[in-house]
């Protein structure tokens, strides 16, 4: 019996001390970590929404999105969408107009695609003037009825983008993630 008691006491002590230490730690680091997270997110949100707008964070149906308003008038929403790419999960921040007809801008938050090919969706070193030409195509892109992509030719319609040669899958994945995400948030926000 004595040993059982000892076990209980020692383990309790260890866990209590450890819990206490972690509580203190959490109190100390949480603000910093949150601040960083917010900073990153806010940067992304502000990049995909028009300038000089008031941004509110809204939680609805377990999803978080950001409402941008100017002079009490909603000018757009921003939200994070994600989905499978060629070999990794793609995470994008996308801003859309209030009526969900057009993308204001999109930004890739994280991707681990094939170096040199799939990574061109974020950064294409072969295009020296505009390494981010691919995501930039989404600026002011019409979403109706959905985004489509074309290969090897200049896009002709206002809902078309040009896929990256050699990285069609990654390009298509971005388009698909955006289409699905916008659809989903459209349903949530316009509910």
């Amino acid at each position: 019996m004595k040993s059982t008691a000892k076990i209980i006491i020692v383990l309790t002590l260890i866990t209590v001390i450890s819990g206490a230490v972690l509580a203190v730690l959490d109190a100390y680091t949480k603000p910093r970590i949150d601040a960083y997270k917010n900073k990153i997110r806010n940067e992304a949100v502000s990049q995909v929404l028009p300038e000089n707008v008031k941004i509110e964070t809204i939680n609805k149906a377990d999803q978080t999105f950001y409402k941008a308003s100017k002079n009490e008038e909603v000018v757009g929403y921003a939200f994070q969408v994600s989905g499978g790419g060629y070999q990794s999960e793609l995470v994008l921040m996308v801003g859309v107009t209030a009526d969900f007809s057009k993308i204001i801008a999109a930004k890739i938050l994280s991707q681990v695609e094939t170096p040199g090919l799939g990574t061109k969706i974020e950064n294409d070193p072969s295009n020296k003037e505009d390494p981010s030409w691919f995501v930039d195509q989404f600026k002011n892109l019409s979403v109706a009825p959905a985004i489509t992509y074309v290969k090897n030719v200049k896009p002709s319609k206002d809902n078309e983008i040009q896929a990256i040669t050699g990285a069609t899958i990654s390009s298509a994945a971005v388009v698909s993630v955006l289409n699905k995400g916008i659809e989903k948030f459209k349903a949530i926000i316009q509910e």
């Binding site: 020692v10 383990l11 260890i14 866990t15 450890s18 230490v21 972690l22 730690l25 959490d26 680091t29 910093r32 970590i33 960083y36």
Partner: peptide
């Protein structure tokens, strides 16, 4: 007991890294 001790320090390390070198 070891796991608890280790976990505590790992959490400390993790939080510090997250806070200072995100």
């Amino acid at each position: 007991a070891y796991i608890v001790i280790i976990a505590t320090f790992v959490t400390i390390a993790d939080r510090f890294l997250a806070a200072f070198v995100p």
